[in-house]
Amino acid sequence: MTMHSSIPPVIEAPRSAPNRPRRGRTNTELYAWLFMRVSGVVLVVLVLGHLFIMNVLDGGVQRINWGFVAGRWASPFWQVWDLLMLWLAMLHGTNGLRTVINDYTRRDGTRLALKTVLYTATTITILLGTLVIFTFDPTLHS
């Protein structure tokens, strides 16, 4: 009877980055991790509050039209509420996608290109959303 000894294959850890040089010690990843936790909790409150108010207290989504939005955004409270949802959701999602890009791209050029597209799309969406919330003109509806 012969015994075959086999050496198990070495499996690289999913978050290791053997080809990337170590940069100076910063707390960027710690702050990003903390932001994800805090923004996630705040988003749960904002989104569930929004859904409860819109669907239970305000009579449901069938009431939503141009006039409803115009009346809603006439109040600074609702402008800030929607602005917080927009900004936190975009930044939370961007931070999550940034982590995925860092974890799964091997080439520095690909990583740079993907992050450039991500940050550009995020910036445009936040700027346009903010502009719409604060410059919404209910008199434009025909």
Rank of each mutant, 00 (worst) to 15 (best):
W66A: 09
W81I: 05
G67E: 13
P76L: 08
S75E: 08
A70W: 05
Q79V: 08
S75W: 01
T94M: 11
L84G: 01
Q79P: 00
W66N: 09
R63M: 14
Q79W: 00
L84W: 03
D58S: 13
N95M: 11
V69Q: 05
G59E: 09
L57G: 00
L91G: 11
W81G: 01
L57W: 09
D82F: 11
L84V: 02
G60E: 07
G60S: 05
T94A: 11
G67W: 03
L88S: 08
A74E: 12
W78F: 14
M85S: 04
G60H: 06
W66T: 09
W73H: 02
P76Q: 06
L84Y: 01
G59P: 03
G60Y: 03
D58K: 14
L84T: 03
G67T: 11
A70L: 10
W66I: 04
D82C: 06
M85D: 00
G71M: 11
M90H: 07
G60A: 05
A89D: 03
V56S: 05
A89S: 15
D58T: 08
A74F: 07
P76W: 11
W87P: 01
G93I: 01
G93K: 00
M54T: 14
N65G: 10
L84H: 02
L83D: 06
G60C: 09
M54Y: 03
M90T: 13
G59Y: 04
I53R: 13
F77C: 00
G60K: 02
G71V: 07
G60V: 09
W81S: 01
W73R: 00
I53S: 10
M90W: 08
H92R: 04
G59F: 03
L86T: 09
P76V: 08
Q62P: 00
D58M: 14
L83K: 00
M90I: 15
W66E: 06
V80K: 03
L91N: 15
R72M: 15
I53Y: 12
R72N: 11
A70R: 02
H92G: 02
M90R: 07
D82M: 12
G71R: 11
R63P: 00
I64D: 02
W66H: 15
N65F: 04
T94L: 03
S75V: 00
W87E: 11
H92Y: 14
L88Q: 05
Q62G: 14
V69C: 08
W66S: 07
W73Y: 12
I64L: 10
I53E: 13
L57Q: 10
M54R: 04
N55S: 12
M90A: 15
F68R: 02
R72V: 07
L91H: 12
V61P: 03
V80W: 10
Q62K: 15
L84R: 00
F68M: 04
W81V: 10
N95Y: 07
G60T: 05
H92N: 08
L86V: 07
A89G: 12
L91V: 14
A89E: 05
L86F: 05
V56D: 09
L86Y: 02
W73S: 00
L86P: 01
V80E: 06
L83I: 04
D58V: 08
W81Y: 14
A74L: 05
P76E: 08
I64M: 10
V80I: 15
N95T: 15
S75P: 00
Q79R: 15
M90G: 10
S75Y: 05
M90K: 08
A70Q: 09
L88E: 07
T94H: 02
M85P: 01
M85H: 02
Q79N: 10
